[in-house]
Nucleic acid binder design. Structure first.
Length: 495
RNA sequence: GGCGCCAUGGUGUAACUGGUUAACACGCCGCCCUCUCAAGGCGGAGAGUUCGGGUUCGAUCCCCGAUGGCGCUACCA
């Protein structure tokens, strides 16, 4: 049956027993979907358990990190609705901690100074078959080492002294017990010769300092984990629970990259994806509520943020990599757009309008009603600024293919203009009356109502695809319908 | 190459500690509806669980091996 869930709110936010997790992106690029999913899982875990979610920026690679990327990452996180309880902390401002930690390790004999230069190491690697560091500086005697360090001629890095024999293991919450022979682990660099820590040192120093209880991160870190475990042991610190999350791959099952199209979170925002759809989709990539709670959630796919928080547990995380499927994301998007109230959709649509430099000329009640009419067939928020422009202003274009398909009959324009006169003369203009007038007109002229309907649709909306014509007519309003039908002869025909 | 991890239809997942006609969703195909396109309703194709050995009365599930994929293999994170 698995372990019981904590009752929500049962723990004080910062009680000693409450979990502490973190998301630790490196600002060397935009937040990509894999990172977003890792952040999401950490956040869900924290919210589910009543723990703390900490944001830490790992910017110790000064060449590749930038402030703009930090802003982008924060923006992306806010977009998918992830808030953090502590931070953001910047590793670039915590250098003293790492240096002190490295010193501590040297003093306790778990680390040593290394005077080999990067160039020397590369040269040795190039010629030898042994890829690992040969430990030559580990064997320097203490006095010699001190002397070389103090003369300052050869800047020294600090390396971890990996134990000679035995193995290092940890119990992963997702993968179970994972074990590595120490002989396979290199004497890795903790502190670079310029005093900047490597990732291996800074994660451990920070994770201990920030009292993290769980480390939830990508499975690409499994191989790094023994290096970290060794440091915890050398430092006499308790191990956090490691939970490695399988990777997200592109459709060709290789690691997701630019080749696969959009890879940054913001790119999906720009594609007109609504954040909740994206979050829902991401949550189900590598995790599922399973059926351990009976069958209640087994066949469900749509989960609100609250649902996810309530349902999320580490044992729902799967072990195998997942392929990112744009079609499924698109489906989530349509589901969410359809389900949203138009009042909720409007601000998101306004963003699209602004980006497209489009100005609606309708009143707000009209706009809201029209959104309700259109949202069942929207695939993206973008549609409101492209396909659906004709509903919100006269600033739209006629789709050439639609014109060719439904408006190419030379008899049509004059018929539609005549129809416009009928509407103008009619005492009322409702969905029912509009339909009745059109059908009567078609019967009178002995033509198919469908021809008139399809032609009208293109004349009114510029598109071949739209909701039911008479709903469109009432949404547009009598005046606009008459005006556009009357102007049908001015619709540009292609060729 | 070495080390580690993973393996259920095209995709994401489900299948309580071995016993199911292997389920759901996306996608795909067809039909219905119909004024277009979606949606919706109905139906369908698609995996005998990568392959081969075991263990067992019985294996998607346990063990071994093979194959494939992915990850790590930096004074990047």
């Amino acid at each position: 049956m698995g372990e019981d869930r904590e009752e929500g709110g049962g723990l004080m936010p910062d009680s000693p027993s409450s979990p502490r997790v973190r998301f630790a992106p490196s600002p060397t690029g935009y937040l990509h979907v894999g990172g977003a999913r890792t952040a999401l899982f950490n956040w869900l875990f924290a919210r589910h358990t009543g723990g703390a979610f900490i944001l830490r920026i790992e910017d110790t690679d000064f060449e590749r990190s930038s402030e703009a990327m930090v802003d982008g990452i924060l923006e992306s996180m806010r977009w998918i609705g992830l808030d953090w309880d502590e931070g953001p902390f910047f590793q670039s401002q915590r250098l003293a901690l790492y240096q002190a930690t490295a010193q501590k390790l040297v003093q306790s004999g778990h680390a040593y100074y290394c005077f080999c230069t990067k160039e020397e190491l590369e040269a040795r690697r190039a010629q030898g078959t042994a890829a690992m560091y040969d430990r030559r500086c580990r064997n320097l005697d203490r006095a010699e080492s001190e002397k070389r360090r103090l003369d300052g001629k050869s800047p020294a890095a600090i390396r971890f002294a990996v134990p000679d024999g035995g193995s290092t293991a940890f119990d992963d919450a997702v993968f179970g017990r994972v074990e590595f022979a120490n002989a396979e682990i290199e004497d890795f660099v903790l502190l670079r010769s310029d005093g900047i820590p490597t990732y291996h040192l800074s994660v451990v120093a920070d994770d201990i300092d920030m009292r993290l209880t769980h480390v939830i991160r990508g499975a690409d870190h499994i191989s790094n984990t023994p290096k970290q475990v060794l440091q915890y042991q050398a430092l006499g610190a308790d191990l956090p629970v490691f939970a490695h999350v399988p990777l997200i791959l592109g459709p060709d099952k290789t690691r997701l990259s630019k080749r696969h199209g959009a890879t940054s979170v913001i790119a999906y925002k720009d594609l007109g994806i609504v954040p909740e759809a994206f979050r829902n989709f991401l949550a189900l990539l590598g995790w599922s509520p399973g059926s351990k709670q009976g069958s209640a959630h087994k066949d469900r796919e749509i989960f609100s943020s609250e649902d996810l928080v309530q349902l999320f547990t580490l044992d729902g995380i799967s072990k195998s990599n997942a392929v990112f499927d744009n079609d499924k994301l698109a489906w989530f998007n349509t589901e969410y757009i359809r389900a949203y109230a138009s009042e909720k959709l409007l601000p998101m649509i306004e963003v699209e309008w602004k980006a497209a430099e489009f100005q609606p000329t309708r009143s707000e009640p009209e706009i809201l009603a029209t959104i309700d009419l259109l949202k069942p067939r929207a695939r993206s928020l973008k549609d409101f600024a492209t396909l659906f422009r004709a509903y919100f202003s006269d600033d739209f274009e006629y789709d050439a293919a639609a014109v060719t398909k439904f408006l190419s009959d030379p008899a049509l324009p004059s018929l539609l203009q005549e129809l416009a006169h009928r509407y103008a003369a009619a005492p009322e203009f409702t969905e029912a009356s509009a339909e009745q007038i059109l059908r009567a007109f078609a019967a009178e002229k002995n033509i198919k109502a469908g021809a008139l309907i399809n032609g009208s649709r293109v004349a009114l909306t510029g598109q071949a695809v739209a909701p039911s014509l008479f709903a469109v007519m009432t949404a547009l309003g009598k005046d606009r319908v008459i005006q556009r039908l009357s102007a049908v002869d001015k619709v540009p025909t292609s060729g």
